[in-house]
Each structure stands twice: as structure tokens, then as C-alpha cells.
Design a protein around this nucleic acid. Structure first.
Lengths: 229, 229
DNA sequence: CCAAAAGTGTTGAGAGTACACCCATGG
DNA sequence: CCATGGGTGTACTCTCAACACTTTTGG
């Protein structure tokens, strides 16, 4: 990338905070930097915006190149502009977040996978630049968002169980929820549909599988609601 | 400003959407451009970020210089990056919103006031660049925000009446609200305090005056709530 | 048959909604 | 004394919150 510096806008970059949900925890996707500064450190996937390129396209491009993650809806979370955030010269970066379902992607397809890894949010290594700040802002936005919009569709497998969805909410909200009230509330919104299948994987009593009703899900996301338990 | 081009970052600017509430309508503060491109047109107050300057500081500086409005909390609403939004070269702009109480400011103190004016949101003239888009985004954010956070403190006079506050909500939400239910709801949150004074200005029955309880107001803003009537 | 997680209903309290009349003032 | 907007209360409905036992499976 750096060998094409003349193609890029040298003072504007993008960074992506990709959240995934697996093993009952929230995880963030990090890549090992292969260029200076901070080569060798784990960092958010990011890079400079090219001349003639839209910011969102830059974020998608960078993400695909560095991690193999494609077709993701990236949401802007703000500009990070501390004067010395980039040590060599002044760079403004536009932060983005996305939620994805880890199982849908083979990370960095075809390239060395050791350089791309999921990290549980409580075990994120020290990050270069202001990347810790960016992750913190992304997480805060996610926590606010969950109260007013449905989540899960982007981050859970296509078929999922209610206990899975509940754990996702618990992880994001950071508190335990009452099983019965959670089910009642979620089901009353009708954005998920029960299937006639059960989850085989569990070694306990199998749970019923559900899928998202994408139309109703998107409508609720537009309209907003209130989730308080 | 343009005679100091060497001091500025030529591809990053800020623009401010300043909402005020007066004469029972939402208004936006516009300035008449005195430089090319689009000299002579009404536009959002905005300008380039200087080298070594933070974005938020740039927004505050530009706003103070162009309109006389100071001491305002500006909130970032996103980056606008269409390729041809600025006709001469590529410029990314960071949009900001603020709510202010018009009566608190003498516009462009000491300078020609004809160049700074409030426009009711339904009577905004054609704007240059992508400024209409920026206003639209700002308005949309305001409409979402009002459902989850209290508003009024920033945009109403220090002493105000309940009917005034209700009209503000009606204007922002775009619908009529029931008087009794509005009062019940607002008063039950305890972020405003009744005074023992009445509003003399009205030519009808005078209404009681209230003030905001700043602490409770800020706490509610942090915590969020749900406003549905 | 035991351990572990899934599934299921009811009740009481509090908030939301709908709705109509009297009051204070200026002209 | 009249026109205009300010101010007030109640009853019904619905949603929220708290809470415990039975069911299904694998080992």
C-alpha cells in the first residue's frame, strides 16, 4: 500500500472496528501491521483513502484487502483528529463499525491467516495510534444502539436460538436479563420467526431455532423502539 | 480567510448547522458568502481547518468569526465526502450541529448583520455545495435525538413556559401533542422547576415560568429515556 | 437417574392514552 | 363580556417486572 503513496490522500484514513459474536463473547477483528509505523503490532484494519475514492468505499476496500471480510454494512462513528495520533504527519481518520457473523467468513481468504484474528473485547492487546479510543467509542455506540434498535441479524448465524440472542443482549448490555421477560419482549416484536428445527449442537436440551424476519427487522430499525429489561 | 491559504489544510473543512427556536419555529443560521465559489449565496457557516488545529476548535472558531455565536456545544454529525461537493478541488467537510437560543446572541456582533440571518426551516433558500444535505442530516439527527434525550435547555430562554416547551417538541417531532399528557410526562421527569413568576409578554392568560434543572437535565441526557406521546 | 439448560404464566404496579371543562387576562 | 390560550383530573388499558417449576436431553 505504501508503495503507492502518490495514489492516496495522505492526511485522511479510515479505520474499522469489526465486532463479531462467538463463544458467547463480543470479539473484535484485528490485523497485524506489516508496515511502519508500529509494524508487527495488532491494530484495527485501516488505511489511507485514495484520490477519487469515497470514504465508505475506502473502508470496504481496506477491510476486504486486509481481512477478507466483504459485503458488510459499515457505519461511520466519527472523525478522530488528535494532533499527534499519527506519529509521522497529521492524519485524520474516519472510524467505522460493523457487526458480522464470524462463521460467515474465512478470514483473509487465501492469505496467511495468522495475521488476522478475533480478540474478545476484554482481551484486546495494546493498540497503536488512538485505536483503543476508537474501539471504546465504537463499543459505546453499540451499547446505546442496542436500546433503540434490534441487533442480532448482522452478527448471529442465520439460524439461532433464543438463548443465543439473549446472551448477545446480555454481553452488549453488560447485565443479566430475565429469561421469561426477554422472550416475551422479543417475541412480541415479531421480528424473528420460530422454525420447526432444534439446535443439534448443544449437549443439553436442544433449543428451538429462529430466523430473522428481515423486513420487520429493518422496519423496526428505522422506526426505533425501546428495549429496557 | 482565503488569503491565508498556506495556514489551512486545503482538503478538510467544517460546516455548522445552528438551530434556533423563535416565533414558534425552528430556524437555521445562515451567512452570506463573501468569497468564491458561490460568493453572495446564503450558506452554512464553515471554513477550512487550520494546520495544528482540532476539528472542533475549527468549527467553534469559524462560527464565532462568521456569526458572533460563541460558547456553544457543537456535536459532530458526520463527514460529507462526495467527490465533487466542492467545485475547485476535493474537500472533505465535517458537519456539526448546535442548538442555541437566538435571543442570547447579537449576531455577528459589531459587524454587518445583514450578512447573518435566521431562516425558518421551511424557508431555507437554495444552498451551495451539499449544504442542503447537511441541513437535512442535522434535522434528522435532531428528530431522533428528541425521542431519547431532553431538549430545550440549549435552545429556549432561561425562563420559559410549558406551552413554549410543548411547541418546541411539536415543531421538532412534527405533530400535535396532548397538553395534559405532555405536562404530566415532562413534569414527572423533574428536569424543570416551576417559578413563582408568570410570563408577562403574552396578551392572553399568562403562563407560569419554569427553568431547567441543569443537573437533572444532564443526567437524563446521559441516561436517556423515551419520549412517546 | 442426574446435571444442565430450555421452556412456560400469572399477578400487581406503574405508565400511557384519551378525553372536557373552568380560569385568567387584554381588549 | 368575549375571545384566546392556560391550566387541571380521572378512568381504562397496556406494558413492565418479579418470580418458580417442569421438560428435555446426554452421559
Amino acid at each position: 500500500m505504501s508503495h503507492k503513496l502518490r495514489e492516496v490522500i495522505r492526511n485522511i484514513s479510515v479505520d474499522c472496528v469489526i465486532f463479531g459474536y462467538e463463544h458467547s463473547t463480543l470479539e473484535v477483528l484485528l490485523v497485524k501491521r506489516d508496515v511502519e509505523p508500529y509494524a508487527g503490532m495488532w491494530a484495527l484494519p485501516g488505511g489511507f483513502v485514495k484520490k477519487g475514492e469515497r470514504i465508505e468505499d475506502a473502508a470496504k476496500r481496506v477491510l476486504a484487502q486486509m481481512t477478507g471480510v466483504t459485503d458488510t454494512y459499515l457505519e461511520e462513528i466519527g472523525v478522530f483528529d488528535e494532533l499527534d495520533r499519527y506519529p509521522l504527519w497529521r492524519v485524520f481518520t474516519v472510524g467505522h463499525v460493523a457487526l458480522i457473523s464470524p462463521e460467515h467468513y474465512s478470514l483473509h481468504a487465501g492469505v496467511d491467516t495468522r495475521d488476522v484474528q478475533w480478540f474478545p473485547i476484554e482481551k484486546i492487546p495494546p493498540l497503536p495510534f488512538d485505536h483503543s479510543k476508537i474501539v471504546a467509542v465504537a463499543l459505546e455506540k453499540l451499547r446505546k444502539r442496542v436500546r433503540y434498535q434490534p441487533i442480532g441479524f448482522e452478527i448471529l448465524p442465520e439460524k439461532f436460538t433464543l438463548p443465543q440472542l439473549q446472551r448477545l443482549y446480555e454481553v452488549v448490555l453488560g447485565k443479566k436479563l430475565d429469561k421469561r421477560n426477554f422472550r416475551k419482549k422479543i417475541l412480541s416484536m415479531h421480528f424473528i420467526q420460530k422454525l420447526n428445527e432444534k439446535d443439534k449442537n448443544g449437549i443439553r436440551r436442544p433449543a428451538y431455532l429462529y430466523t430473522f424476519d428481515k423486513k420487520k427487522y429493518e422496519k423496526l430499525k428505522e422506526k426505533g423502539f425501546v428495549f429496557e429489561l
